[in-house]
């Protein structure tokens, strides 16, 4: 099975994250890592390859610095990578990013596309659906379990209430949550092999996309301003002058807790 895993480099969600003057994510001043959910997608791809054979390709759209995350992804075990890199991509919205990913995926003709269910920077969760639409393939999103039987895919789709069982034939895109598996550590052999694995560089020109379709120029939405979440303020103090209980109850009632 020919599997492509979408891997995004994101600012480390455990560290301080900031926006640049143009309201894009400031990637220079943060330490950048593989989007955590994508590691689960890589693990799932590797498990499918180990069970059914095939090839695993990592596909990344991102700046030059994303190479670091691509090598880390390859050190877990995928065979090769494709890196779409173009200065015009800076500021791309989800729609534009999907167009670029779809164009790159057409050159790879995968049977199965795997991705994390969301990225920790954008958190919009729409790219897998948009790709399914653009490529005309089935979308099985939010998987907590994936079973492959020939060309038939069965997914347990995680919801707030429980899970749904959905099936589709390949080609398809499956996005995964962190409940699906336990990603492996890159082995030292994997780390040393990663630097010898092929990484194909593609530009927008290679994909037949013009610069004004992507980036800020082609964005379908625009950030006008942003504000930090207000700092937490001190709560109301209840001084017990014999009626503390009543005051507590009336406070809870006013907040509709009781």
């Amino acid at each position: 099975m020919n599997i492509v895993v979408l891997v995004k480099q994101v600012p480390d969600s455990g560290a301080e994250r900031t926006l640049s003057a143009d309201f894009s994510v400031d990637r220079a001043s943060s330490s950048n890592v593989i989007n955590e959910m994508d590691e689960y997608a890589i693990e799932e791809a590797l498990k499918i390859k180990e069970a059914h054979g095939g090839e695993v390709t990592v596909l990344t759209v991102g700046p030059a610095g994303a190479t670091d995350s691509i090598r880390k992804a390859l050190s877990m075990g995928p065979d090769k990578a494709v890196h779409v890199q173009d200065d015009a991509l800076h500021g791309s919205c989800a729609v534009a990013t999907s167009k670029v990913l779809a164009a790159a995926l057409r050159t790879l003709s995968p049977d199965l596309i795997l991705s994390g269910a969301e990225s920790t920077d954008g958190r919009v969760q729409v790219v897998p659906h948009m790709l399914a639409e653009l490529l005309g393939v089935a979308a099985l999103t939010g998987a907590r379990k994936l079973t492959v039987d020939g060309s038939q895919l069965t997914v347990e789709r995680q919801t707030d209430e429980g899970y749904e069982v959905v099936t589709a034939a390949t080609p398809a895109i499956v996005s995964v949550w962190d409940t699906i598996n336990e990603p492996r550590y890159p082995s030292f052999k994997g780390i040393m092999a990663a630097k010898k694995k092929p990484v194909q560089a593609l530009t927008l020109g290679d994909l037949g996309i013009s610069g004004d379709e992507v980036g800020f120029a082609g964005a379908t939405s625009q950030v006008l301003e942003f504000n930090k979440r207000p700092a937490r303020t001190g709560g109301a103090k209840v001084v017990d002058e014999g009626n503390g209980g009543e005051q507590l109850v009336s406070y809870l009632a006013s907040e509709k807790f009781v």
């Binding site: 492996r184 550590y185 082995s187 030292f188 040393m192």
Partner: peptide, 26 residues
């Protein structure tokens, strides 16, 4: 063993064959 840490700086026989510095850092 899965991580590759055991005999990591040795060559062949299932060992990773890393540098001495990498072994030291481990």
């Amino acid at each position: 063993g899965k991580l590759g840490v055991l005999g990591m700086h040795l060559e062949g026989y299932g060992c990773a064959g890393t540098s001495a510095v990498a072994y030291g850092l481990a």
